[in-house]
């Protein structure tokens, strides 16, 4: 790492920050004379460390972003150009052929419709059932509560991939295989969601509900009108996780259906990759599909990015 900088940049945050702004605005080249005049205390080494740090970050950010940029661009290229000139950002000839094919030759609209339908129902279901159960486990005293909670904790550690065969077996037994019900119902609640909600309800004081209770409101009424509105932050978190999770879900939809009409975006687009369409000259089509299926999650991500990123951090905090 920054071997040549004996003094680390963050050590003088307040002093160094304006320098960053200034140089940032000016150009990529630091201006030693100017900064030296303003802040004699910042040695050259600190500044060079800072620039090295920027350089590393910009390089890394390029590695992380460039694949997406090239993909979007290639989806507007002709098949031949996408293959011959994969690195170019601006297509020589911009064509919407891939997108047209996606809605012509390929039932992309149907897949998208299925995914939207399933994701909306699953998200609403998870938010409702998980907060209901989380509330009960946090607030209501009933016999067996501890056992139920321990059960949920145990379920948390069951790895998703080993459920593929079991899920198929039960859906077949119940006659739900290859139906919307079979694709939706098993996803309607997750132990993790229950856990997140329970943790949240544990953190808010129960004085408010006590008042409602003394007023004689029933448990569900208290939950629905008093507690749930207070749980907005946790609900939003759960909403984001559920929507993103069900939108991107692949495994369950592989084992719960087989009819082409029930394809979701994930299974449908996956079939484009492994499918008979032939590889190599299909990149614009596949990439167009990938781009379109990413847009909703990307929008959600950019709208709620602060919350999403704090969520993961929050998970760490238990």
């Amino acid at each position: 790492m920054t071997t040549k900088t004996p003094v680390d940049a963050p050590s003088e945050p307040r002093d160094a920050a304006p320098v960053a702004t200034r140089a940032d605005a000016a150009s990529a080249i630091p201006k030693p004379t100017k900064t030296a005049k303003r802040r004699r205390s910042i040695p050259l080494r600190v500044r060079s460390g800072m620039w090295l740090s920027y350089l590393i970050l910009v390089g890394l950010a390029l590695v992380y972003i460039y694949p997406f940029i090239v993909s979007v661009s290639a989806s507007f290229k002709t098949d031949a150009e996408a293959t011959q000139n994969p690195l170019a950002i601006v297509p020589e000839t911009i064509t919407f052929a891939a997108y047209e094919r996606l809605f012509g030759d390929v039932p992309f609209g149907l897949w998208a419709g299925n995914t939207i339908l399933i994701s909306v129902i699953v998200t609403l279901g998870r938010v409702f059932f998980d907060s209901l159960a989380g509330y009960a486990l946090s607030r209501l005293k009933f016999r067996g509560r501890t056992i139920v909670f321990v059960g949920f904790i145990a379920v948390l550690s069951v790895p998703g991939v080993v459920l593929l065969i079991p899920r198929f077996l039960i859906l077949q037994q119940l006659g739900l295989y290859d139906t919307y019900a079979g694709m939706i119902i098993p996803l309607l609640s997750t132990a993790a969601g229950v856990f997140i909600m329970k943790q949240f309800f544990d953190s808010i004081p129960d004085s408010v509900e006590e008042a409602a209770r003394i007023d004689g409101a029933g448990s569900f009424r208290t939950f629905w009108t008093i507690v749930l509105p207070m749980a907005r932050p946790a609900l939003v978190t759960l909403f984001i996780l559920s929507f993103q999770g069900s939108w991107n879900e692949l495994g369950h939809f592989i084992v719960s259906r087989q009819s082409p009409e029930l394809n979701t975006l994930t299974t449908g687009v996956a079939s484009l990759v492994s499918g008979q369409l032939g590889q190599g000259n299909q990149f614009p089509l596949q990439l167009a599909a990938a781009v379109l299926m990413t847009i909703p999650v990307a929008i959600l991500f950019f709208v709620f990015q602060r919350r999403i990123m704090n969520t993961t951090a929050g998970a760490e905090k238990g």
Partner: peptide, 27 residues
């Protein structure tokens, strides 16, 4: 945090992982 996070879960953190809150996190 960490001890608590670990003891409950592997998962909440895991759920926030890419594949999200579905059944296949970590996959």
């Amino acid at each position: 945090p960490d001890a608590a996070a670990g003891s409950v879960g592997a998962d909440p953190a895991d759920r926030a992982l890419p594949s999200g809150a579905g059944t296949h996190e970590g996959s």
